[in-house]
Design a protein around this nucleic acid. Structure first.
Lengths: 203, 203
DNA sequence: GACCATACGGAACGCGCGCCCCGTTTTGCA
DNA sequence: TGCAAAACGGGGCGCGCGTTCCGTATGGTC
């Protein structure tokens, strides 16, 4: 329990201070390799493949992350954090409608580029389906909710939808875009689906 | 090559005529068990599990279907055929708009009930991703296209979408509904997403 | 420069699962 | 009823992959 530097809180702060130099370097390499590999293939990449790309042995990976899933979660946590940052930045913008729709599209696009993000978003929705990055999803949902509320306040999004709907629509858009991957321009389905969020002209 | 009664054309016609009685019975049992098991768990159910449910040995399954995937395809083919039937029936109806939207919703609902259908629909979209039920998907797309064309002719669906868009939206809806599975009533997301297919009031 | 804790690497283990093999049973025809 | 062909069943093989183990190399300290 006191072995792995992964579970304690001294993980996010940055570089895990008290650690031998090569260990810190290898940890970074593993993380980088995992990011790349998970992005391309999702959770299904063999762990040995990640080790190879990182130029280390499988044992080394396990010394830094207790399990393959833990490594996956670390990658996801980082990606999610970036999304949340993005959301908060945009929330300060001038045009709430544009902020919301741009963030929505941006998120879908990142999910298209990173298979791991797809899988995390899809899994995060399920009720009791594994939710690895515990608080991470909550933070994302909060950020999305904030943008949504502002957009609704500005009349850019209809009032009878909530974060749950939008989150589901987002996951749906990822599916759609993947379906038409190279037969339609990027964002085509997002644009189509987002129409359903805009207020109807006449009631 | 002359061993399996699966690859030749004498497969779809119904009950594979020249076959020992027990063989025919077992084949039916396997198919039924597979339908149930694939519906619940998708392609990931162990083949042994299907054999157990059917009350036969694994060898028996392989005598009737050369591969696990072949069995999967057989199940999918049957489900797809039902969908196509459904589409053709509705195409004869009076209200093209209702026919289209009802078929759309019905398809999503069936996909929610059968994980295999989800997987088949999702896989069928990709360009070079395996497309097991070769012509089956085409037939489905054709049926959907027929309903779409009629609905557009009646002004119930906007003219600037085509079958590819609709098919993608359909797959997206399956994702969305799964996301909100037990936190929203059935069809909630479908209703939302379908709004984007309706013509805008004013231009 | 020497020493020991720390970290490394990759061989090895266990497990799940698709698929095959072959001794045994069943079927249907003569 | 007898017999050959057809079908059965489930044990077993091979493989991929997550995880562990341990002999070896390396880094930081005295």
């Amino acid at each position: 329990m006191a072995k792995q530097p992964a579970s304690p809180s001294a993980d996010a702060p940055g570089k895990t201070p008290s650690m031998r130099a090569d260990a810190r370097r290898n940890r970074a390499r593993v993380l980088a390799a995992a990011q790349e590999a998970f992005a391309a293939e999702g959770l299904s990449v063999p762990l040995d493949e990640i080790a190879r790309r990182a130029g280390v042995g499988a044992g080394t990976v396990y010394r830094h992350f207790p399990t393959k899933e833990a490594l996956f979660e670390a990658v996801i946590a980082e990606r999610m954090a970036k999304l949340v940052d993005d959301a908060q930045t945009r929330a300060g913008g001038e045009d709430p409608g544009a902020a919301f729709f741009e963030f929505f599209a941006e998120t879908v696009e990142r999910a298209m580029l990173n298979k791991d993000l797809c899988e995390a978003l899809e899994a995060g929705g399920g009720p009791k389906l594994k939710e690895p990055p515990a608080g991470t999803h909550q933070a994302f949902t909060d950020g999305l909710g904030e943008l949504l509320a502002r957009a609704q306040g500005a009349g850019a999004v209809r009032d009878d939808v909530d974060v749950v709907d939008v989150r589901a629509l987002l996951v749906g858009c990822v599916s759609m875009e993947r379906q038409v991957r190279d037969v339609r321009p990027h964002g085509h389905m997002v644009a189509l689906a987002c129409d359903s969020l805009r207020p109807r002209r006449a009631e």
